Simulated scan of single mutants.
Amino acid sequence: MEFMNRNKLDYEIVKLKHAGKTFQEIGNQYKLCGAGIAHKYRKFLFRLFKCYHQFLSSNGIMDAYEFLEFYVSIAITIAYMEHMHDDSLSVLRHGEPPLLAEFYTDIPPFRNLTEGQVKTFETRIVEEKDQQNKTYADIGKALNLTADKVKRMYQFYYHQKCLKAIEIIEPMVDFSFIDYIFDYSYYPQVRWQLIKEEYSDLIQGLID
């Protein structure tokens, strides 16, 4: 209860955001800038997650960071914890209702993915994203994953390809190839396209 009393504004920001308000609209309501509201929203969700994690861990419930690794979205992770462990968490909240559970009612079931499952999902995600132009959300629905998890797996696939390409190309050029690539774009799939366009003769073994 003390935690929520100290963070009443942040608590309201989260409720308003998930009720459909934009960060700017919430900022207008509280006479704050939208960017500041977005920062407060993200910071509060992580603090709430840590609070839930510590409480559940102290009661012998598995490491909540495993939930976060699977769902990636911290909001969905919190909602999952509220759905699955709310008898415990309601004690922590002194009877206050869950914050995010009502906004996420169709959460993929949590599971620990094997290395083989990850590879299978990764292959399908890349194919459906690149060749069929599907959205992360659509792919996630088909695979029972969150859109955030699909996005992370997609980008990690290309990040790994970029790192392998850098190992090959870096010794063969007279400049910092790694800086060149990482300065070019934030997105690993975009970096990979540049590498393919400019150095395809050197990385044939990495091209699908």
Rank of each mutant, 00 (worst) to 15 (best):
T146Y: 03
A75Y: 06
F67D: 08
G140R: 08
M81A: 10
K134A: 01
A101N: 10
D63N: 14
L92F: 11
D138G: 06
Y104S: 11
Y80V: 07
N144K: 14
M81Q: 06
Q160E: 11
I125G: 04
D87N: 14
D63S: 05
V118R: 15
P109W: 07
P109L: 14
T77F: 01
H94Q: 10
Y136H: 07
L143P: 09
L99W: 12
D130V: 00
Q131F: 04
K129E: 02
Q155I: 00
R93Q: 11
T77C: 10
I107W: 12
H94A: 09
F110G: 00
K119T: 06
N112E: 14
L99S: 12
L113C: 10
K141M: 03
M81T: 01
P109D: 15
T114K: 13
M153R: 10
A75P: 04
Q117F: 12
K141T: 02
V150S: 10
L68M: 05
F70Y: 15
E128T: 12
P108H: 02
L113W: 03
L92T: 11
I139D: 02
T105E: 14
T77G: 07
E127Q: 05
K119V: 07
F110Y: 15
H94G: 01
E122Y: 01
R124T: 04
E122S: 12
P98Q: 03
Y71Q: 07
F156L: 04
K164W: 00
A75N: 14
M84E: 15
L99V: 14
V126G: 10
D86L: 01
K149Y: 05
S88K: 13
Y157S: 08
V150R: 08
H85R: 05
T105P: 02
N133F: 00
H83I: 09
M84N: 14
F67A: 04
D86F: 07
L89C: 13
M153N: 05
L92G: 04
Q117T: 15
E66T: 02
A79S: 14
A79D: 13
D130W: 01
F156G: 02
M81H: 02
A137T: 10
C162K: 01
G116S: 14
E102P: 00
D138V: 06
E102S: 09
Y71C: 01
M84W: 05
Q160R: 11
P108M: 07
G95I: 07
Y104N: 11
K149H: 04
E102H: 03
L163S: 12
D87Y: 11
I78M: 04
E102F: 02
V126C: 13
S88Q: 15
V91G: 00
L89I: 13
A79K: 13
S90R: 15
M81P: 02
S73P: 05
F121T: 03
N144Q: 09
K151Q: 12
I74C: 10
S73M: 04
Q131I: 01
C162N: 10
L145M: 09
E69G: 06
T105K: 15
E128P: 00
S73K: 12
R124M: 10
D86E: 05
F70R: 08
D148T: 01
N144D: 11
F103W: 09
C162A: 12
I76K: 14
